[in-house]
């Protein structure tokens, strides 16, 4: 058992899809066996440059390829946005606990995404579609800044046509070409078609969005233990050793990154 926990495996960039001005999806083909559970994250290395954490956005049942949807937001991601197809990247992981799908069985599943936060949720949605008979209903609520910032533009209409699915999108700022709902994502969380006694809410997006969505969900009657949040901290080693992603007495990398609101509500500064 002499595995080197810091050594990445090689993955080749097979395809690059431009989702919006700042977001691209990279399809990676790992050269060794690699699998993950939905909601777990990976560390992606740009050799000689740096490493950053991402939650795959693809269906975990697809074993030979993984998609990673990346917003150009920092030093590593800006360089990742400029790599050509067929580049070699490094992957470590998967890390963390992912979504506890078995706890969602037999329930109404509300999924609320904000901006690039829809990326890990796409992986979740695709997993749920794979065993849709296990869930009562899938209620999707997705908000982005403008129509141009929406991602998975082709997939979303397709999802909304699936049985058991109720999907609404919104943009913070509309424009003449936008025909849909305008307003923050919290404005499409009124009168949710869910049975509150038997529902879970899964939220992923920028911290400020997660904060207000969580408050809204509590307000409409969700219990803290039924709200699942993807905490964004500085995950680096992925193994609870380097210290950077500590959140109270948890490490986001190994104890999360998905936490129930119940688990984190008494901690300080969770939305910072």
């Amino acid at each position: 058992m002499n595995k080197n926990i810091y050594k990445p495996i090689e993955a080749v960039v097979e395809d690059i899809i431009t989702e919006s001005q700042t977001i691209k999806t990279f399809t990676l083909r790992p050269k060794e066996n690699f699998s993950f559970r939905t909601g777990q994250f990976i560390e992606l290395t740009l050799p000689g440059i740096g490493e950053a954490p991402f939650t795959p956005s693809s269906d975990p049942n697809v074993k030979d390829k993984i998609d990673v949807t990346i917003m150009n937001a920092g030093s590593v991601t800006s360089l990742l946005h400029n790599i050509p197809k067929n580049s070699s990247l490094g992957i470590r992981g998967p890390y963390g606990k992912g979504y506890p799908l078995e706890k969602f069985h037999g329930k109404d599943v509300l999924i609320v995404g904000g901006g690039v936060g829809l990326a890990p949720l796409r992986s979740l949605v695709l997993s749920l579609f794979g065993q849709i008979d296990k869930y009562k209903k899938l209620v999707l609520r997705y908000g982005a800044r403008t129509g141009g910032d929406l991602i998975y533009k082709d997939a979303i209409p397709e999802w909304s046509r699936k049985p058991k699915v109720d999907l609404v999108t919104t943009v913070d700022v509309g424009d003449p070409s936008w025909k849909g709902h305008v307003g923050l994502v919290t404005t499409i969380l009124e009168d949710l078609p869910v049975n509150l006694g038997n529902a879970v809410g899964i939220v992923c997006g920028p911290p400020i969005m997660m904060k207000f969505v969580t408050m809204k969900l509590l307000d409409v009657g969700f219990k803290p233990k039924d709200i699942y949040l993807s905490m964004e901290k500085n995950m680096s080693c992925g193994l609870g050793k380097c210290g950077h992603c500590r959140l109270g007495s948890y490490y986001t990398c190994k104890d999360g990154p998905v936490f129930t609101y119940e688990e984190v509500k008494d901690l300080h500064d969770i939305w910072d």
């Binding site: 990445p8 050799p47 000689g48 740096g50 490493e51 937001a73 920092g74 901290k233 380097c242 992603c245």
Partner: peptide, 30 residues
Amino acid sequence: LADSSQKQQQNGKLRLWDSCQYKNYARVAG
């Protein structure tokens, strides 16, 4: 956990002691 520059001979993962007193210790992308 850092990456050495490709120009350097020691191409790979570097580990450096870090301090939680440094400004960017917990900073995330963005």
